[in-house]
Nucleic acid binder design. Sequence first.
DNA 1: CTGAAAGCGCTAACAA
DNA 2: TTGTTAGCGCTTTCAG
Lengths: 340, 340
Amino acid sequence: MQVAKPTIQQISEITGYSVSTVSRVLNGYSKQYRISEKAQELIKKKAEELNFKPNQMARGLRLKRTFTIGLVIPDIANPFFAMMAKHIEKAASLSDYSILLVDSDENTEKEKQQIKNMIARDMDGIIVAPVGSEKKHFTEIIERKIPLVFVDRYFENCEIPFVTSDNLQGGYEATKHLIENGHKRIGLIKGDTSTQPVLERLNGYRKALQEYGITLNSAYEIGDTFSIESGYQSVRTVLKLPQPPTALFAMSNLIGLGAIKAIKETDLNIPTDISLIVYDDQPYAAFLNPSITTVKQDSEQIGKLAVNYIFKKINNEKTDVLQVKLQTQIISRASVKKIK
Amino acid sequence: MQVAKPTIQQISEITGYSVSTVSRVLNGYSKQYRISEKAQELIKKKAEELNFKPNQMARGLRLKRTFTIGLVIPDIANPFFAMMAKHIEKAASLSDYSILLVDSDENTEKEKQQIKNMIARDMDGIIVAPVGSEKKHFTEIIERKIPLVFVDRYFENCEIPFVTSDNLQGGYEATKHLIENGHKRIGLIKGDTSTQPVLERLNGYRKALQEYGITLNSAYEIGDTFSIESGYQSVRTVLKLPQPPTALFAMSNLIGLGAIKAIKETDLNIPTDISLIVYDDQPYAAFLNPSITTVKQDSEQIGKLAVNYIFKKINNEKTDVLQVKLQTQIISRASVKKIK
DNA sequence: CTGAAAGCGCTAACAA
DNA sequence: TTGTTAGCGCTTTCAG
């Protein structure tokens, strides 16, 4: 029982009014064009009856707007990004915008290809958490003046707006927290080092150590992928050192999970034998035993600010280039032990 | 430095060939139309040079295809759905399809509204994990012959295709697992009871109890929302019973987290004082202490099958109505203790 | 082998 | 207060 999709044209024929009148009424320009009450009522009634919905392709073609925002995320299964995506979608849909979602799978090739796709599909704006290794495929977005904002990950010395956490601060405070609990041998389990957040967290880590006069030990800085597996391998390695760390700082929730696995397998106890702090707070962190001390990022705020900025750009409002680093917060739980 | 977006028209002017020829070449119809080598080369070269990408809105308007699949999920921050979404996106992008993502936030109103949106946007297919309370807003999708498939959640006695887990089996086996470990007083912490999976898991639970001659106790069946908070409150309540359960079966990973919180707060120990099994296996389950026994669902397969089916429908291949319930698997870990 | 032209459904400038 | 009409960029029929 296929129901033909009603068009403005059909409503025009049925009501006897022209397509322009129908269009005007349906787009809320009734008073502006002083459309008669009679026409308004009839048209609205018929549209309702037929369950009319304007064809967005036609509308978009004409208006050169798609009412959709492209979102490119390296791993939607990572709860940090999932939460961000949730709030981005929410903010967008509140303004009748939709989200075209891409999971780049931490793969630059897919990212490149899908950025092209987003351009071809005329996204009104694009939000991306770049994989991190390359950035020249973003220049076309900028040349075409398509509103673009990076979230979480971004590039240094670059005009592209971004919203992220203050990773320097986060790295610094996490490390400081460990130091203030008496730790001097602190292992840093890193994510993808081609990525700005990792670099800054690393800087924060070093800054804290130096401030407290602790000499850096490059063997304690290890890892290069945001995954459970990488966290696991890295921690296994670092625990085999002649002088293993007394505390670990894991750079993401996935890495943290891998770290816990490695620690368990080595028959070590958290926090008795080794302390742990994890970047990025996830619901389950509180339920692990011991509960895990984390660095909390405001993913909700990141998403909201990104969408807001895109909307401002879409509406041609003047704005400074948005380059925001949101404060992070240490959520102190039971995985860090005071020593000495 | 705004770069005009090249159109087929412009390429036509530059190369001196008509738009039709350009279109044919660019769409790979060169041999079919026996286009001259010369024309082919010139056109392709220019298109490449100008970084031409066909305008998808115009193309869609003409073709009446959008090359996009709508995905409506109740909570993208739930790792189960996130994982599913990841695989859906992956499968779709492999065929040059994109995903329009909606998070219905477990809210029927938003779901309704966004289903309308999907229709207005002419999705080539729609995949939805329905909130569960209502289904009549899906009829329009069906009347319009838009390929539709439900994932995870679905409706009974309904022609709409779905891919889900075998929730009856999952509920049955989880309960049986507990019973075989000596438990007779088993609390069932439910999710949204307007939802088919919850109903079936519940049936599986009851079936197992009856099979073993254990009388049902309605006070042990509690809860109605897929959330940490609901799991927490429900478990608190059930633990206050004069005869509290010796084992708990939590119907989702979020509910499981809430259960753990409540158990801890009551100063009970898992599994010494109380056993726990959780529906839906998530990476962190292995890292909780104790590690949690779970019912694993194949979210990857769910996603893939759903997308495949949509593609078959899009391509007008004949298929039976897809109504698949994938087997689940008990992942036995340390949260269930043998008693008596 | 190639081109002209219609038309997908909509908006908006222009005309009345 | 309303209608006519020209496109938006593309595909495809029909005509060479």
